[in-house]
Simulated assay, not measured.
Amino acid sequence: MPMSATVRPPHSRLRLPAVVLLALLTAMAAMLMPVPAAYAASSTTCTGSSHATYNPGLTLTPQNVAADEIDTFSFCTSTDPTLTSGSFSLTGGTIPGAACNDVIAGPGGPLTVTWNNGQTSTAALTYVLTVTGGILQTVGTGTITAGELTGASAAFVWAFVLVNPLQCLAPGGLTTHDGTIAAQITSP
């Protein structure tokens, strides 16, 4: 009894693997396409300077002192290419019982950074102060609650060298103090 055989054209054996290969290539192309800006993770890192003024000047004797501060981010890198620098100021705060090199700060609260691109970011932060190795460091961590980068986590770090107590004995006390500031803002 003769056996019959079904002969298939050679190209039909390639049909299934070709379909699978096409699906894989399509999936890989989708992964390589840029993510729309509304869904892209954003990140901003900044460094700069902090300038604080005190009235009356800080002395070795605790007293209520009005403090103003101007912070300038002179260099920023960001996933938003228009954001390259920024600044903010904290004015009118009173520090009760302030003295030279005393780590007690005035009330914290939100701060609003004005960026060079005309946008703003308001941060709600919780502050922790430490003194280590002659450096007074304040770390503020929280969230951007309004403006550019809303919803991102934020960390701001201020660092000031402890002052020479002799500066606090000068007439009028210590009226200005300069330090550095850095910020890291990252959205999920």
Score class of each variant (00 low, 15 high):
116 N>V: 15
108 G>L: 01
92 G>R: 03
111 L>R: 09
118 G>D: 02
107 P>K: 07
103 V>M: 02
113 V>F: 09
127 Y>Q: 05
99 A>S: 15
109 G>R: 10
112 T>A: 15
92 G>K: 12
77 T>Y: 00
57 G>K: 04
79 T>L: 07
117 N>Q: 04
126 T>G: 05
123 A>Q: 08
94 T>Q: 15
99 A>P: 04
68 D>L: 04
56 P>W: 14
70 I>W: 01
81 P>E: 15
76 C>V: 14
68 D>A: 15
93 G>I: 11
130 T>Q: 13
101 N>L: 03
103 V>S: 08
81 P>Y: 12
115 W>T: 13
124 A>G: 02
99 A>E: 10
77 T>P: 01
117 N>H: 11
57 G>R: 09
68 D>Q: 11
71 D>H: 02
65 V>C: 12
71 D>Q: 12
91 T>A: 08
99 A>V: 02
70 I>S: 10
72 T>R: 13
117 N>R: 05
116 N>C: 11
61 T>N: 13
86 G>Q: 10
87 S>H: 06
122 T>G: 10
96 P>G: 13
64 N>G: 01
77 T>A: 07
57 G>D: 14
99 A>N: 09
112 T>H: 14
72 T>L: 12
61 T>C: 06
111 L>C: 04
59 T>H: 12
62 P>S: 11
106 G>S: 08
94 T>W: 13
75 F>W: 05
119 Q>V: 02
57 G>Q: 07
83 L>E: 05
102 D>V: 04
81 P>H: 15
73 F>A: 03
127 Y>D: 03
72 T>G: 07
104 I>Q: 09
127 Y>V: 01
99 A>K: 15
68 D>E: 02
60 L>G: 12
60 L>M: 12
73 F>W: 00
88 F>W: 15
75 F>I: 13
64 N>P: 03
91 T>V: 07
103 V>H: 05
103 V>A: 08
122 T>A: 10
67 A>I: 06
73 F>N: 00
128 V>P: 01
73 F>C: 01
71 D>A: 03
108 G>K: 03
81 P>W: 09
108 G>D: 11
74 S>E: 04
82 T>H: 12
78 S>D: 11
118 G>H: 08
57 G>F: 04
121 S>E: 03
69 E>M: 07
58 L>Y: 01
60 L>T: 09
130 T>I: 10
121 S>F: 09
130 T>K: 10
66 A>S: 13
116 N>G: 12
84 T>G: 04
129 L>Y: 02
105 A>F: 05
65 V>I: 15
62 P>K: 09
104 I>C: 02
84 T>F: 00
64 N>Q: 06
65 V>W: 05
116 N>R: 06
62 P>V: 11
100 C>G: 03
93 G>C: 04
95 I>N: 08
78 S>R: 11
83 L>P: 00
98 A>L: 13
120 T>W: 06
93 G>V: 12
113 V>G: 01
117 N>I: 14
97 G>E: 07
75 F>M: 09
78 S>Y: 01
84 T>H: 13
83 L>D: 07
62 P>F: 06
76 C>R: 07
95 I>V: 14
118 G>W: 08
68 D>T: 15
127 Y>C: 00
107 P>I: 08
59 T>Q: 14
81 P>K: 15
131 V>K: 09
117 N>C: 08
